[in-house]
Design a protein around this nucleic acid. Sequence first.
DNA 1: CGGGGTCTTGACGCCGTCTTAGCGGCGGTT
DNA 2: AACCGCCGCTAAGACGGCGTCAAGACCCCG
Lengths: 225, 225
Amino acid sequence: MTFVLVVDDDPAMRRTLSINLRARDYEVETAGDGRSALQVVDERMPDVVLLDLGLPDLDGIAVLKQLRSFSRVPVIVVSARTESDDKVEALDLGADDFITKPFSLEELLARVRATSRRVGREEPDLVVEVDGLRLDVTDSRATRGDTEIHLTPIEWKLVEVLARRRGRLVRQTELLTAVWGPAYDTQTNYLRVHMASIRRKLEADPSHPVLFVTEPGMGYRFAPG
Amino acid sequence: MTFVLVVDDDPAMRRTLSINLRARDYEVETAGDGRSALQVVDERMPDVVLLDLGLPDLDGIAVLKQLRSFSRVPVIVVSARTESDDKVEALDLGADDFITKPFSLEELLARVRATSRRVGREEPDLVVEVDGLRLDVTDSRATRGDTEIHLTPIEWKLVEVLARRRGRLVRQTELLTAVWGPAYDTQTNYLRVHMASIRRKLEADPSHPVLFVTEPGMGYRFAPG
DNA sequence: CGGGGTCTTGACGCCGTCTTAGCGGCGGTT
DNA sequence: AACCGCCGCTAAGACGGCGTCAAGACCCCG
């Protein structure tokens, strides 16, 4: 059964959606503000989140941003605002879909179906060990032997994207959009600088990298072993 | 580079979308009717399809239905009709997103980004193995036995285009536009030079190529086996 | 208000890649 | 037999990408 989290500050809207979703055999949880929404996502891992942008405490956009920092749950943004800027921002921040009020219930349900259709692949814990170095990506912990190695947020994000496709080439554009957003997909000097510091921390010999390999003109590859 | 197929019966719309998408570094192909759209999807496997519902020959819905019978490519349906029934039908038939005309270009681009990000690299691996030589095109990796072979970006692009149509002839014009853009589609000397270095790296006997065959006056063919 | 860590930005040198031009071989045509 | 188009091949120089460093902006926290 699909588990949906409805985030909206309007109790009537929460109620309407709950009733209708439950009638279609969805399991439903609701949240009236951003903080509790984030909490529910963290604790109960819903399959889909319906996120209203007009929330009392946090801006809906801010909620989305925070949410994406720890979860990849599909998010459908619901908003009264039709400005395309809002849509663009939400979608680029990691929203999976966008629907404007007023909407027909059938359309919403169809979008929920379309979005949750893709759900199912639960990713295993991402841990890599290479001669003494241990990278626990899901926990954001790195150790060599017994000593802890500290990586900055940007470094972790890069390592994460690369580790998720280990062995495969990840293009510069992809790394850039993953960390800085689509607008920065030509700023390759960012990559050069930050990949350098990643190597300084993780490579046995930073001047001759074997873990984080450059593919000139294309991207980088995380190639342990 | 993301490869987008634009399906619309209105030439002006096709043109507008092509120009704007190409300006953002998308590779674009267009189709004016359902049949050619299905053909392009079959032959060239785009990463995203923008599908207009009002087509001359087949109904857009019918196109979507047929398309889903053989491909899982992400489809964004574009339509002038705002009826929620249409949206529901399209989404349930396997469309990944729905956007109504008139739309802002930025929103469309954001939806393309969101869709292609979501689907990620689910494309089946394109791997070719011929007596000791292994070409993994999706990973951009080439090995003979245990030794890694390094290809440059241009070489990979050429190999990729050829491998995608393995066995079939690919015209010079097409290779040239794929790598250097439409403005260079007569610079056949580029092809001569770069095909030479591809052969030097990948062919067992570069002076008697069997994998990358020249079809004089027409183009090249990747013919493994 | 001050300080440590992080990120951005620009400059520089090195090195591999791409471009460009020229030459020779091969085959078809007249 | 001579010519012409097309292709393979080479090599030199132009070009651009990458790593590196350092200075300054920024931000969070005390």
